[in-house]
Design a protein around this nucleic acid. Sequence first.
RNA 1: GCGGAGUUGCCGGAGCGGUCAAACGGGAUAGGCUUAGGACCUAUUAGCUUAGUGCUUACGCAGGUUCGAAUCCUGCACUCCGCACCA
Length: 936
Amino acid sequence: MIYKKIQEKWNKKWQDAKLFEATPIKGKKKFFGTFPYPYVNSYLHLGHFYSSMRLEALSRFKRMTGHNVLYAQAWHATGSPIVNAANRVKEKEKKQISILKMQGFSDEQIKKFEDPVEWVKFFPTEAQNDFNDMGYSIDWRRQFFTTDLNPHYDKFIRWQFNKLKEKNLVIKGKFPVIWCSKENNAIGDHSRLEGEGETPKDFIWIKYRMKDSDLILMTGTTRPDAVLATTHIWIDPKGDYVVVKVGDEKWVVGENVVQKIKDQYDSKVEIIRKIKPKEIIGKWCEAPLVEYEVYTVPAWFIDADVGSGIVYSALEDPVDLVEIQHIQADLNLLKDYDLDLEVIKKLKPISIIKVEGMSDNLGQDMIDKYKITSPKESEKVKNAKDELNKTIFRKGILKNNCGKYSGMEVPKAQELIKKDLIKSNDGAMFYEMTGKVVCRCLTPGIVKMVEDQWFLAYGDEKWTKQAHDCLDQMKLYPEKTRQQFNYVLDWLRNWACTREVGLGTRLPWDEKWLIESLSDSTIYMAFYTLYYKIKDVNPELLNDNFFDYVLLGKNVEVKVDKKLAEELRDEFEYWYPMDFRNTGKDLIQNHMSFAIFNHTAIFPKKHWPKSYGLNGHVMVDGVKMSKSKGNFITMRQAQKDYGADASRFTALSGGEGIDDANFDRDLAKSIILKLQSMLDFAKEYYNKGRKEKLGIDKWMDDKIDAIVKETASYYNETLFRSAIQISYFDMQNALKWYLRRCVNNPNLETINKFIETQTLLLAPITPFVCEEIWEILGKKDFVAVASWPKIKEIKIDNSEDFVKSTMEDIFSVLNLVKVKPKKISLFISPKWKYDLYKIIKKELEKTRDFKVIMGKVMQNSDMKKHSKEVMKIIQKTVKTGIDNVSSQEKEFKVIKESVDFFKQEFKANINVIKAEESKENKAQQASPGKVAILVE
RNA sequence: GCGGAGUUGCCGGAGCGGUCAAACGGGAUAGGCUUAGGACCUAUUAGCUUAGUGCUUACGCAGGUUCGAAUCCUGCACUCCGCACCA
């Protein structure tokens, strides 16, 4: 493999020359780009590769266009996955061990992974090798990893949080999470065996105070609006209920939901006694928000374990309605209970919601629609309920009998009613999971209210406004991600920023908490500008004053050497703000938005990020990359299989913008060969060729310049796929045509220009082969720091297109006649047609009306002679429009000069004649830009 | 449900009102080169028609605006991404 040798050679040379170590140069424009530090629990894969390549290629391009470029890279170890994985290794969990074995780790190394610290030591080094092998132009002096394992970084994060706290942006509160009671930890999506995407959902419990008693019946619901239509209470006659003491109150709930109260509401809840349902059935309760009392009725269809174990009934609900109708039809069902049947008989729906197109009895409408005849048709009943709830939520308006809620849309009313109930102590917030969740340790998840939690106040109005200000001044690649960002900035609410387990930095003022991983990674790009100069400084000296001095320019006392502090301040001021940060689109809704928020909170406006790049996900051969599909490719694997250059080329040509990118392995293979032949071509053709300059050489020179210009504009817009399209494929095609046209006898100057230019244009993409070529060309410096080619102004000349289309026309004629031609006559259009075209072209700018143009043309006496043909031409050109019109003389000259080329192509004699000078009928068919062809 | 992005030929994908049967890449077919294969080069790759520049049908579906629409507008269908405490 030739590329292996080339890679090693140039990697060493770059390193020896310290080519990518970036230091401030006064007065030189800078470019500071970053790629979010990867989490170091495994080798890097193609996803990392693709996203980071966009920064890497852009950095190289910027270097060639006169920028002082800083590209630094660090590693993220904050959070729990590493600790969890290490624990699993310790427990010798099979799945975890096999994952590591599959990655080729020895038993000895796996043993070492029992210690989380080993991961943090091991993977960054490996990742650095991967980046290096791929030819990344990173300043490695500045690399670091996160957490308190790195005391310098630890100090930085502490400073950051102190700053946020000062500004009241870190606040305390509580919030519900899905929890594993065995591991005593929240169960994130990644650690779930079952139930990905399930979240806690509001499920308010409403208090119905029993009359002549201090007991309160707790009824759970997702539809607090229906409380306005309460008709009665349902209770499971066979259920196990208890009375519990919550604060000063006595609640009646299902026995099995007590734990829920403990987890979510009050950890000190006490069971006072069991209570038989019969004690409750047939009693009256006060209904909140409405001014009447409701009766408790037995229900066989409710479950004491669900929700609170008791529900209130609003007979607009098809479930409730069909049940009560069932009971009313056969009151015998209630004979075991001491009930006032008159009350039962009178129960009927109270209409509180208007839905366009439905009657007042919403429940009945649904029962009729689903043709439900008995409560036993549970499938139908459930569907009817779901549909009604959806309809009400979307279209329902509260009627005039709803007091202050009258006229409100249902979602709004629900929120307000919830608030009001809580405020008047007629309700308590509880949560249910949207679906079943099972922890990796096989324990079913529950909802738990975490107390004492610290939040970043992303919901804060002023802060959100500032974040928008920042976004508004940023450039986004591609721009169409802006909508999504705008939405996210508004949507973000308080973010729980502390954890109890994992690796990380301790919260400075409450050290039982660790700062969570998405929260310690928001402004660390600033740390790149300092780290390489402070890593040997005693971290104890890096107090808040130090960072205030260096990063915020405050003139406060520092413990470090004053000169160093000043230097660092200069360095920070030089590199900041960050010019570009690139990552996958999945980070829009968290990391990238958090970075905006935090920059605006900590830094002055001039240091806010300048631009973001977002890219799609990576597919392999058109299929989403995943371990289970067996198409999971690590960076090192790609490098081994295809080499750095071909991998880089393939990744970047696989897609651009926000679309998913396809890493096509067949393409990667073919690129290896293509790069090899590019190298061979340079060797064979450079500095050889004729001196004489022909029209075709000038065409090629212009073509190259046009490609340079276009490529640069694509690089600037991070459109690397297009850049490759133009600078490689289009340029190769131009070369093919050029060599064909000059019968493989190129002009020396032109061919040199081609080779040099293509090498420069591709250097950001395929740096190794380009360095090698650059050396073969005898250039002394690295192509990596060579200047982007200068171009002269490009003239538009389409005479070459004329030659090409003429050639293609001859081919199509030959295809039809299928004879070996002896002589081919090419007729140039008669003169009058050029005039006609010019007139039409001018008229077309004003009108597309056939008659108007015809009239105008016919004013010219010359055209009258050809009226029939003129008509045809106008008819056609009105539809198609007209390109630039040349002259007969010019077209004649162009074709005449290409005679040698046509001879070579068609192995026949070529005859070029002006139409006027020929007697052939065919000759009259010629038109401007289109010769007539006669094959003999 | 909410928010976003999409739907183009055998496939991937450009195109953003006339120059579009649609760049470029891949595949397929034919020919050249070669001992053969690979690589490379050339032509063809919606249908019909024809010594070429013609007609018809095509750019998710249905309508509309326009002299003219893959491109603009409206409605519909479908696909993908995100919806959090997690990297």
